[in-house]
C-alpha cells in the first residue's frame, strides 16, 4: 500500500499529485475486484479497465438519479440533454487546446468548465425571463453541439479519430485519471445533495412557498443546474454525450411509477439505475455492444416493468381506495371542526 502511494505521488503531473489519494482508492477497488473475479469466476472482472468502468458505472447509478429526481419533478428533464451537448463542446475545446497548443489537459476538465458555464447561463436566462423554456434549451443544446463539431472539423485529421468515445461512451477508455476525476465529482455531487436536500426538495415541490419561507430559490436553482452539469460530464465517459441524459430521467421516471413518498422515489431510482448499470455493463461486455446504449435499453425495460407494476398496484388498490373514500365522506364533518392542542 505504502509502495503504491509513493509511486503515485512520484507522478509528474500536478493533477496526479492532487488525485494521489483517489488513485490509492482506485488501486484498492481494483484489488477487491480481482478478489471478486476469483470468487465468482466472472471473466469481465479480470481486467483492470473493467474495474474502473464498473466503479464509474456504479457512481453514475447513484449520482444521476439523485439529481435527476429533482430535475424530473420540476419538468426539467431536457436540461440534461442540453448540458450534455455543451459538455461535448467542452471536450472539443480540450482536444483543440491539446492539438493546437499542446496543453495536455484532460478534455473532461474542459467539459466540466464549459458545461458549468452553460448551466449557469441557462439558469440566469431563466431568472431574467422568469421561466425555463424549450426554446432557450434547444438553442443552448444546438450551440454546444455546433461549437463542438466546428472545433473538431478545424482539426479533422487529429481529432475526429477519438471523438466516438465522447459521443457514444466507452468502457475501455475510462482512464485512471478520468476515473479519479469522476470519483471527486461523485463526492462533490453526493455531498452537496446530502447537505442541501431539504432546500432542494422545497424548491422542487413548491418554489413560491420556498421563497416565502426564506429559502434563496435562485441560489438553489443554480446549485441544481451546476450539479447537473457535473453529473453529465461524469457520466459521459461511459454513457456518451447522446445518451447521458437518459440516466438522469429514465430511472427517476420508473421510480415515480412505484413510489409513494419522495424518499422512496429517491432510493428506488438509485436502485433501478444501479440495476440498469450492472446488467447493462454485463450484457454489453459479453454481447460486445456499446455500454451506453445497452444500459439505457435495460433502464427503459425496467421503466416499462415499473409502469406495469404501478398499474397492477393501482388496479389492486382500487378496492381499498373506494373503501377509503367512504371513510373520507363519513369523516368530512369531523374534519370541519378540527381540534387544537
Amino acid at each position: 500500500m505504502t509502495k503504491s502511494l509513493a509511486f503515485i505521488v512520484a507522478q509528474s503531473s500536478p493533477l496526479d499529485a492532487v488525485l494521489a489519494p483517489v488513485y490509492w482508492l482506485l488501486a484498492q477497488w481494483s484489488e477487491f475486484m480481482f478478489d471478486v473475479a476469483r470468487w465468482t469466476g466472472l471473466g469481465l472482472l479480470q481486467y483492470q479497465y473493467m474495474h474502473r468502468a464498473v466503479l464509474v458505472g456504479l457512481c453514475i447509478g447513484v449520482m444521476a438519479p439523485l439529481i435527476g429526481t429533482f430535475l424530473v419533478h420540476r419538468q426539467l428533464a431536457l436540461i440534461g440533454d442540453a448540458l450534455a451537448h455543451t459538455a461535448f463542446a467542452g471536450v472539443a475545446v480540450g482536444l483543440f487546446l491539446n492539438a493546437v497548443l499542446d496543453f495536455g489537459v484532460s478534455p473532461y476538465l474542459t467539459a466540466i468548465i464549459v458545461a458549468m458555464i452553460a448551466a449557469l447561463s441557462i439558469e440566469l436566462i431563466s431568472e431574467v425571463t422568469d421561466a425555463y423554456n424549450d426554446v432557450s434549451m434547444a438553442i443552448v443544446l444546438s450551440t454546444g453541439f455546433a461549437l463542438g463539431t466546428t472545433l473538431i472539423s478545424l482539426n479533422a485529421g487529429g481529432l475526429s479519430v477519438g471523438i466516438d468515445q465522447y459521443l457514444f461512451g466507452n468502457l475501455a477508455t475510462v482512464s485512471r485519471e478520468n476515473a479519479a476525476i469522476l470519483l471527486v465529482l461523485f463526492a462533490v455531487i453526493v455531498g452537496t445533495i446530502a447537505l442541501t436536500r431539504n432546500q432542494l426538495l422545497y424548491v422542487t415541490f413548491d418554489e413560491t412557498a420556498a421563497e416565502v419561507a426564506g429559502i434563496p430559490v435562485n441560489w438553489y436553482n443554480r446549485t441544481m443546474v451546476v450539479l447537473t452539469a457535473l453529473v453529465v460530464v461524469g457520466a459521459m465517459q461511459i454513457m456518451g454525450v447522446i445518451l447521458v441524459a437518459a440516466m438522469l430521467v429514465v430511472p427517476v421516471a420508473g421510480a415515480a411509477q412505484v413510489s409513494r413518498s419522495f424518499t422512496g422515489s429517491l432510493l428506488s431510482s438509485v436502485v433501478l439505475a444501479e440495476l440498469a448499470v450492472v446488467v447493462g455493463i454485463g450484457l454489453s461486455y459479453y454481447g460486445e455492444a456499446t455500454a451506453g446504449g445497452v444500459i439505457v435499453l435495460v433502464a427503459v425495460a425496467i421503466y416499462v416493468a415499473c409502469i406495469v407494476l404501478g398499474r397492477l398496484r393501482t388496479a389492486l388498490g382500487e378496492e381499498s381506495a373506494a373503501e377509503t373514500a367512504r371513510i373520507d365522506a363519513s369523516g368530512a364533518d369531523s374534519k370541519a371542526e378540527p381540534t387544537t392542542d
Binding site: 431539504n198 422542487t204 421510480a255 415515480a256 413518498s261
Partner: peptide, 15 residues
Amino acid sequence: MPITVREVVKMGRFP
C-alpha cells in the same frame, strides 16, 4: 410528484 402528506408538512420545519 411522489410525496406523502407528512413529507409536505415536514417542509414547514426546513427554515
